[in-house]
Write a protein that binds this DNA or RNA. Structure first.
Lengths: 204, 204
DNA sequence: AATGGGCGAGAACGATCGTTCTCTCGTTTC
DNA sequence: GAAACGAGAGAACGATCGTTCTCGCCCATT
């Protein structure tokens, strides 16, 4: 087993176990058992649990945003893409191992104790907001910034409500609210392109 | 020190420490030191840490919803009350010891391991939703159920975004989105009572 | 005044944690 | 072929956890 494969197996095991059981509930020895990588190698590659936790969060961030962007990009029209985010969330909520937002969970557990974790979580949320901002801007919203922030709040809320309630339903509530917000921001949704919404409040 | 005072001191210490540092990061001995109650008495009143954690969550639930309801009830008109929830959230976010939703944090940490914690968290969210439903209904929304669910998602999202970002700003984003959602549901907001919103979409 | 029971202080216990060390074995290199 | 190296398995270490036990003291009852 070469180093890149060992890294992959370690991060795969860490991600599965940390996400399912929480970080403090999973010991290093359990990651060794699940990955099949010896404890010595584990500490060669990740010199402390904190380092492993941060690597887990940063790799998950990339994968998560990549999967979201890949799904959203299949929508042919830019005006549909902001709402597609919530369709993707609904699919994610329905997966059997869904257990909420890994970053929110990590922050609640270690945000006070570990600055590295706090920073990784903040970076993730900032990247998601940036991504939403691009989607909202390309959809033609009058003021993309505030709208993107509202969509980010809706997405975070949907994730936590779905995790706690154990149902994907909050994705639909969030989608409906997002639709209302986008419509109020002048983003047409059912009509073909080039047809501005009637009575759009051009605030400002 | 009689039993009721010991209980109060224990729950006060548990709440402060669990909320600030997370549950697994706080040992029973630290709660003993902070409360001034002996370990023997602690285990007489709360026979295990799990019992103490559940008692902490349930008492915090009552206090939290009580403070919210007290604040909202000061608004004279029913149509203002749903949005007042987000004003209260903004004040809460600005408190120096704010660290997100105690229930979401506890769920992320112990939701897998402790059914008692999961149930307490679910009960809290269900009660909040019930409360929002009453506010939205009394404000005159056409379909209070879906609107209340959207407001609940917005509140949850605002709490997590504020915790991670370290700023109260998400309360304003959530409030703006809530305002848009309420307006679309036929709840007039600026006008005095008895003046139905023009062009309200009476869906259904 | 004698005594007994409950309480506080803190030691003790077994388990588990993150991390390091030891021992052994297979491989490589001169 | 011998010696040096690297890696795996797992014991070991010190710390900390949740929980229980011991001991000495204070107070109440007779």
């Amino acid at each position: 087993m070469d180093i890149t494969e060992a890294d992959g197996r370690l991060l795969d095991a860490a991600e599965a176990l940390f996400y399912e059981h929480g970080i403090q509930a999973v010991g290093m020895d359990r990651i060794r058992a699940a990955s099949g990588v010896s404890l010595k190698r584990l500490y060669q590659r990740f010199p402390s649990k904190d380092v492993l936790v941060e690597a887990y969060l940063r790799r998950r961030d990339g994968r998560w945003r990549g999967a979201l962007a890949e799904y959203v990009a299949t929508r042919p029209s830019a005006v549909e893409r902001p709402l597609a985010v919530f369709d993707w969330l609904e699919e994610w909520f329905g997966e059997p191992d869904f257990r909420g937002c890994a970053f929110i969970n990590a922050y609640g557990e270690l945000g006070t104790a570990s600055p590295a974790v706090s920073e990784a979580v903040r970076d993730h949320k900032a990247e998601v907001l940036r991504y939403l901002h691009g989607l909202v801007r390309d959809a033609g919203a009058a003021e993309p910034g505030p709208v993107a922030e509202q969509l980010a709040v809706l997405a975070d809320g949907a994730i936590t409500a779905a995790a706690i309630g154990g149902t994907p339903a909050p994705a639909r509530s969030a989608r409906k609210a997002a639709s209302t917000v986008l419509e109020a921001a002048g983003v047409a949704q059912r009509q073909p392109a080039g047809c501005p919404a009637p009575g759009g409040h051009t605030v400002g």
